[in-house]
Amino acid sequence: MELKKRKKDIAGFVSIGIVRITFSFLVLILLLLLGKIFIEGIGVISLEFLIDEPRNNMTEGGIGPAIFGTVAVTLLMVLFAVPLGVFSAIYLNEYAKDTFFTRIIRTSINNLAGVPSIVFGLFGLGFFILFIGKNLDEVFQTGLLFGQPALLWASTTLAVLVLPIVIVSTLEALNSVPKSHRDASYGLGATKWQTIKNVVLPQARPGILTGTILAISRGAGETAPILFLGAAFFLPNLPVADLCIGDYCIPMINPTEQFMYLAYHIFIMATQSANPTKTLPIQYGSTLVLIVLTFLLNITAIIFRYRFRKLLGRL
């Protein structure tokens, strides 16, 4: 009986074997890929590499300005996307009744996540730069200031791109707060806003944070949409300007300037470098930095979410 059964299942044994091999193959490829980047890239990594400017027609030096630009753009992006996304999600989950209209919003948000990122670039150009920017220039008589590719418009465009990530994870987080906790709060005489502020949001915070981190990681890794929104090959100066109140000045990100971007830097160095073979170590180094950055962000998000789910599971 035992033997017979085994014999019959050779097909199954083979099939499951294939499934296992498939997965192992993928893991192997992934490890090779990451290993290659690590081995080739680790050599150039040093503090100088992370802070220095590119030198000698970009064949030497570091990636400091590209890192700065990435941080600046994603920072502004978060400033736009997170409040808008979180507030929208609060509206959808806490205030709006389930109507045809809200279902349309939800469907559109899901679909927005599938729009090719290059299309967001077109949108940024058509809407932010040529419509909003040009009109700002006209209204404030600033000459050509806002109506051209700049850090600000790269951030706003990326903000729209990551909006679905923020909204969807916030919705999930709000949804996971048990109804019984809201009932308890209302039962104690809290208003809707008090309930949201004191009961719902504190419990949803880790989930919202997870979404924010995922959004940053996505934004920092995007290249296509910013290609024509102000990402620059090389800039002698950081996009910084002094903001002065009276005599007191502090350096601030200048959102009207162009910027260097780590992901864009990799693309440019790999395809348009003056000497691609000589700069190969720099390319690997930059890639390693970008990968480590996105991995750290994603791992943080994963750990956050894991803790968050575990916490909820206990309630």
Binding site: L33, I37, G221, E222, Y264, I266, T294, I302
Partner: peptide, 14 residues
């Protein structure tokens, strides 16, 4: 998920 989070420019580069 980490795999899915690799920036595409990195994959293009490799």
């Amino acid at each position: 998920e980490l795999f899915a989070g690799i920036p595409t420019v990195v994959l293009g580069f490799i």
